[in-house]
Design a protein around this nucleic acid. Sequence first.
DNA 1: GGGTATGATTGCAG
DNA 2: CTGCAATCATACCC
Length: 460
Amino acid sequence: MMEEQARIMQALSGVTLAGHSVQGGMGLPPPHGHEGTDGDGRKQDIGDILHQIMTITDQSLDEAQAKKHGLNCHRMKPALFSVLCEIKEKTGLSIRGAQEQDPPDPQLMRLDNMLLAEGVSGPEKGGGSAAAAAAAAAAGGGADSSIEHSDYRAKLTQIRQIYHTELEKYEQACNEFTTHVMNLLREQSRTRPISPKEIERMVGIIHRKFSSIQMQLKQSTCEAVMILRSRFLDARRKRRNFSKQATEILNEYFYSHLSNPYPSEEAKEELAKKCSITVSQVSNWFGNKRIRYKKNIGKFQEEANLYAAKTAVTATHAVAAAIHNSQANSPTTPNSGFQMKDEEFQLDSAESKNSLLTNMFTAGSSASFSLPNSGDMFMNMQSLNGASYQGAQVGDNVQSQGDTIRHAISQTVGYNDGLRHPMYSPHSLNGNGGWHGAPTPSSVTSPNEGPGSVHSDTSN
DNA sequence: GGGTATGATTGCAG
DNA sequence: CTGCAATCATACCC
């Protein structure tokens, strides 16, 4: 082997480096012993080839093409080509074959799932709004939640659009590049050993490269969504007072259930719906309210009175209406003890609630409103303006008015069918200041309440 | 800007 | 899980 190499070297030096020594000395002594016609001939062949190579750039393109064509048409070409392909397969390339079936990248899967969950890569509309809704639900709503919500959705749509545009671009570029490379390889396969398998492999490599770029795109998209999401949630985490209306509704409920201010799950849902807040916000509100009320009952007294009166007014409407209806339906119905003149309750548009209150609860007022001596309302109203109200025995009379009236009154003044059990007063807070002495928590409606009784918490 | 009100959070107990 | 109590963080008001 070494000998042959040396001989080739000699031949090369003899041809291409004629007159120049590469072996250090000033001159190379002529080789001895191996010279002959055979050696000279081979030397000449190699020299010709090398010469051709060296001068190939001097040839015109046409000449080169002609040579290429000549080679392609050579009768030995197909055989040689397949042999070379085979050799190539057997060497390096076949080793890489094992790496080809790429297992699904867990990171890519994570990204895909996330994008799907965020509604970026999923079906057109549903996913996005679902994610936004989820985010909204997670953060809780507010009066302006819809604004923030739509803002979030708009930004998400923007991200989605960018993502899809970029993805499309990448896919297009990938396809173009693949086609280009395939054509190139097919072309080249006429002059060098490239098997279809290799082309396939190359396509795979290209796709992998592009998918890694896609992964970067997905990653940045995910980041963008996450940032948007966190900003959105942060913005909603910012405390925002409930609307006045919502606070009123909650307060009304609280003070009309002062004896047991623990709304049931249904009541909470109802309140949440009415106030456009979440159930958990209702729970928070009641939790805060209970504790703050308990801590400083005095401070809340005024508020309690206000809401008691308010509730009384609205309920009075109901009662008046109920009576009116009842009377209309059965004119013979006796209404002693609970007689009210309709005109005293024509208050809706002309009179404000406040002026009505003044009329109703001023001693000199023509309206005489008797309340049972057992409800929260009564206690609160007692301190409203110092007037003393007699707890009339209205129960029987009211009952005689039929269910409608009984329900209305029950709603109004905390009247229960039982009527014999004392309801809550601030003084009945137990030693720990809890409501635990009161009817069972979480059962908003009093346990003593009759089964047919309708309570305000569920009836509105 | 400071004080208060208020919605939310946290840690604990039942 | 619910509610309580303490606390935080912010909104709101003067």
